[in-house]
Nucleic acid binder design. Structure first.
Lengths: 143, 143
DNA sequence: CCGTATCCTGTCCGATACTG
DNA sequence: CAGTATCGGACAGGATACGG
């Protein structure tokens, strides 16, 4: 999933009228971002921080119930790397680390909210479609 | 995304220490939908159909370059199951199958556009953040 | 041309144990 | 409390070959 995002290729000038010309670099980056954000844990951490503001490691782990330390660390690190969250270490005993969304992280949360709203709005249609599909295929309902 | 998001498996509930903005059940379903829809191939197929309209199996496979037949079939099947695309079989020889977006699929594409725009708009910030992170961590370029 | 079935590999993720 | 390291199971997904 980690594709060559290091490319300095710039093609923001999509001033043409052709809608079918999607820049490969942009497309790659978008896929990369989506891939990360759509991750089960990343999404939940994003939400948790959007809701509660600053949180500690353990707090985060409690809110995102079910996540392992490994995944929490990994998720949070990647989000930090992408500039979505800030990681503040207080050098005291016992250790104390705070996590918070950056403006970039907040804006992503907001942007992704559109898809969230869509899913919520159309979940009935989706379930209907699934049922219709199961009916037509003669297959039993998958879980 | 990753593997586990097959269906609404989130039976685990938080001890309600903090008020959630959304219903847990709805959240689970939305996560499920997001998980499927945000899939790398699903996204590309969605885009391809949004751009080109109706497409045949092989056409689709050519546009979404790099996808295997297995994944293409699987992706398209799931999208059909969720009511995002229509699958029209022309019983001729040789076989001829057309795929097209449903209104639901189009609306999803539109909703996803927000994230797409976000990624495009902020890709510089993200790359900067990554560079800064690499610098601070003393890590070499991750390919 | 379209789709399925089989094999095989890479990777994700949870559990556990240990350090500062 | 916060994080790292390692092991092992499970599954996604690519390649291939074959059926309709």
């Amino acid at each position: 999933m980690s594709k060559g995002s290091g490319s300095a290729m710039r093609a923001e000038n999509v001033a043409d009228g052709a809608p079918d010309t999607v820049d490969p670099a942009v497309e790659a980056l978008v896929q990369d971002i989506i891939g990360k954000v759509a991750d089960r844990w990343t999404m939940l951490v994003l939400e948790a921080l959007e809701e509660h503001g600053t949180l500690r490691f353990t707090q985060l782990g409690r809110i995102v119930s079910g996540i392992s330390q490994k995944m929490l660390t990994q998720t949070v690190r990647r989000m930090e790397e992408d500039g979505l969250v800030t990681r503040t270490v207080h050098p005291v005993i016992p250790p104390h680390v705070d996590y918070a969304l950056t403006p970039l992280g907040s804006s992503l949360s907001e942007a992704f909210c559109g898809v969230w709203v869509w899913a919520e709005k159309h979940r009935d249609e989706i379930e209907q479609a699934r049922r219709r599909f199961s009916e037509a295929s003669g297959k039993p309902r998958p879980a």
